[in-house]
Design a protein around this nucleic acid. Structure first.
Lengths: 254, 254
DNA sequence: CTTCTTCGGTTCACTGGATGAACCAACGGT
DNA sequence: ACCGTTGGTTCATCCAGTGAACCGAAGAAG
């Protein structure tokens, strides 16, 4: 609409992020903007320290760590992260499975922290991954604590199926949310990725509003139904601890 | 120089990141650009999902998690982070002190990961902090593994003293780098922050080039000289493990 | 209550910065 | 030698970005 050069710049930045060592023509195609413009933007972003030419392959562009610095300094995730790391670490050691910390990002759950299991067979989600809410345990956990309006708006949008097991029916999802509330934790059986099961619990921030969620994930062969309750309760305890640190239960909400 | 609207946009973005809930006038002053322009940029960045109005305080702008998503997906830090988390976790448990993972960012060390000590008295550096290389153990460790040209260039620049104990004399720093190489780990006694001592070790990437560093930090009352060797060797072992995972020692460098 | 200042946000005429088609030279495959 | 690709450059056109001046509202000071 307006400031379209800024739009181009940001889109180029995101394109670089998504295609890592990205070539000029490649980016030009991706963003659908002439090479000349893309190159000029890249140079500008370069001067600002956000991108640079790859040392390994000349002509290829990569994100610098500076982008990470700016982003991590700002995002609301950092305060959650600080409150969560300790308890999360303990949870990982208790369960010996991979645990994730996720916060909402435009209808998706963004993985901002991950502690791995020592097992060789493990769930693997790179940091920065964005998961559809209806297809992840973190997402369903978040929805179970979010306000009704948000949930309805989300369910009204298009719901993609990532695996044959992904639930995309709004009515069914609503029922699952109710179950999650009653149970205290959400369960996702291969709805995100075949062979992976995970258990999620919401985190509450000041005033008790949903702020994010945590999850325990692993191969469906290890995370079997018989363990759901144990893991669910462990995660719920951890979440309560984190939420308290975030000020969810303080008297005035301040 | 060119694409100055992009420059403004990025500067506004960084200003928002630094001043967190930032007001319009405040940002306008900070970036030295008329309010109208700043507002237009903020709206554009808003449409792109990078910033949004704070819910708590109307009119105040904050970074969204989306920025974090883009940045963390891209930066070279992520591959290091993945390789480092496991060993780092073990190091934290062994030493019971706070451990940091840092990567270079324009002459500074950028803290991209932190695992806290359970102790109440602890070193505290928020994620995303940028530390001068000469004033931090991570920085000196990195310099000890960086190539000579980089070191000289860094030492030629202005070196700020953060505490009375900060070493800013290039000759002395050069000597400390040599010591670090011989010893295998760097030592920073209150050079970054009064009362904090830390031990650093460099990480090597493919081809054996310096890629980042790790450190053990804590109050100078706990991290006493008698512990230097123990901690230094523990950290060096961890670093070797991480460097190996990064492919530092693989035959061909590929 | 009246001032005075600051806030977030809006308006609009002007112009210089952004645009993109057309252009290189270089590389790799056939 | 041919072809298609790459990263990168040039430059005339024109519209998007700029910024001074403006507005109403909210505090603070008197």
């Amino acid at each position: 609409m307006s400031t379209q050069s800024v739009v181009t710049a940001i889109r180029v930045l995101e394109a670089v992020s998504d295609n890592q060592p990205a070539g000029l023509s490649e980016l030009s195609r991706e963003v659908d903007v002439p090479k000349a413009t893309v190159l000029r933007v890249l140079r500008t972003l370069g001067e600002l320290g956000w991108v640079s030419q790859s040392e390994a392959q000349a002509g290829k562009w990569v994100l610098t760590n500076h982008a990470f610095a700016v982003a991590s300094r700002g995002s609301s995730g950092s305060v959650i992260r600080d409150a969560a790391m300790g308890p999360l670490n303990a949870l990982q050691l208790d369960t010996t499975e991979t645990v994730h910390l996720a916060v909402p990002d435009r209808g998706y759950m963004l993985i901002i922290e991950r502690l791995d299991t020592p097992h060789v067979l493990r769930a693997f989600l790179p940091l920065g991954s964005r998961l559809p809410m209806h297809a992840s345990s973190t997402g369903m956990a978040y929805l179970s604590a979010a306000d009704e309006a948000f949930v309805e708006e989300y369910l009204a949008g298009p719901l993609e199926a990532l695996t044959p097991q992904t639930v995309v029916d709004p009515a069914q999802l609503r029922a699952m949310i109710v179950d999650t509330r009653a149970r205290g934790y959400s369960i996702n059986e291969q709805g995100l990725s075949t062979g992976i099961t995970s258990i999620g619990v919401p985190l509450l921030g000041p005033g008790g509003v949903a702020a994010g969620s945590i999850s325990i994930s692993g191969p469906s062969s290890r995370i079997v139904p018989a363990k759901y309750q144990e893991y669910g309760e462990a995660a719920a305890g951890t979440a309560r601890e984190i939420s308290r640190a975030l000020g969810a239960f303080s008297s005035k909400g301040y």
